[in-house]
Simulated scan of single mutants.
Amino acid sequence: MNPKTFEYAIFHNECDVFFKGKGVYYIRSDRGEHEYGLGMQCALSEVNNNKVSSSEFVSEFTKFVNGLDTTESDLVHFYQNLYFYFLCLYKYKSITKDIVFSDEEANKIISDLLERTRDTLISESYIPYIVERFPRAKILPVIEKHKNN
C-alpha cells in the first residue's frame, strides 16, 4: 500500500493529516504551499476506483471537519479542501455525484462550522469565490443562509 494514498491514511488513522497535507501527505506546489487539489483528486480517484468506499470518504471528511478549530490555519485547510472537492466533482468529474453534501451528518457538521466562522476574513474571502465558481453546489443554500444572517 502506497503511504501517500487516502487508503493508507484511512488504514493508519491519518485522515486529518491527509486533508491538512502534513507529513508524507504534503505535496509541494510551485508556490511552495501544499497542493490540496492533488490530495483531493487522489482521494476521490480512490473512491471512483473502489479502493475506498464513498461512505468511508464522507465519514473521514466529516471527522476532519468536525475536528477543526476556528483558527485561520484550520479554516484554510477546510476551504481549500472544500474548493478542490467541488472542482473535482464539477469540473474534473472525479466522481459522478456529490457524496459529501448528500449526507445529512456531513451537511450538519459543515453547516455548524460555517455558522461559527461566518464573520471571519477567511470565510469572507472564500465563500464568494465558491459561490461564483460552483453555482450547482448543493451546499450553496447553506452558504447563502450563513452569508445573509
Rank of each mutant, 00 (worst) to 15 (best):
M1N: 06
M1W: 07
M1S: 09
P3L: 11
K4H: 13
T5H: 04
E7H: 07
I10F: 05
I10C: 02
E14S: 11
E14H: 10
V17H: 05
F19P: 05
K22D: 07
Y25R: 00
Y25S: 03
Y26E: 08
R28W: 06
R31N: 14
E33G: 04
H34P: 11
E35D: 15
G37N: 12
L38I: 10
G39W: 04
M40P: 09
Q41Y: 11
Q41T: 07
C42N: 14
C42P: 03
L44I: 07
S45L: 14
S45M: 12
S45F: 13
E46H: 10
V47R: 07
N49H: 07
N50Y: 15
N50S: 15
V52Y: 10
V52T: 14
V52K: 05
S54G: 10
E56R: 08
V58D: 01
V58H: 00
V58S: 00
V58R: 00
E60C: 08
E60S: 09
F61H: 01
F61M: 12
T62K: 09
T62L: 07
K63Y: 00
K63S: 06
F64D: 00
N66M: 11
G67M: 04
L68M: 08
D69R: 07
T71H: 00
E72F: 00
E72L: 04
D74M: 01
D74P: 00
L75I: 02
V76Q: 10
V76D: 12
H77L: 00
F78D: 02
F78Y: 15
Y79Q: 06
Q80T: 08
N81R: 14
F84C: 01
F86Y: 11
L89H: 04
Y90Q: 09
K91R: 13
Y92R: 13
K93E: 14
K93N: 14
S94H: 12
S94Q: 10
S94D: 13
I95N: 02
T96N: 15
T96C: 12
D98A: 07
I99Y: 07
I99M: 01
F101C: 00
D103Y: 06
E105H: 14
N107E: 01
K108F: 15
I109L: 08
I110V: 15
I110K: 06
S111Q: 03
D112I: 02
L113G: 00
L114G: 05
L114P: 02
L114W: 11
L114H: 13
E115L: 12
E115T: 11
R116T: 05
T117K: 02
R118H: 12
T120R: 01
S123Y: 13
S123N: 15
E124M: 03
Y126P: 02
Y126E: 03
I127E: 02
I127N: 00
Y129D: 06
Y129K: 15
V131S: 04
E132A: 08
F134T: 01
F134K: 03
R136T: 10
K138C: 05
I139F: 10
I139E: 08
L140R: 09
L140F: 04
V142T: 14
I143G: 05
K147N: 10
N148T: 09
N148G: 02
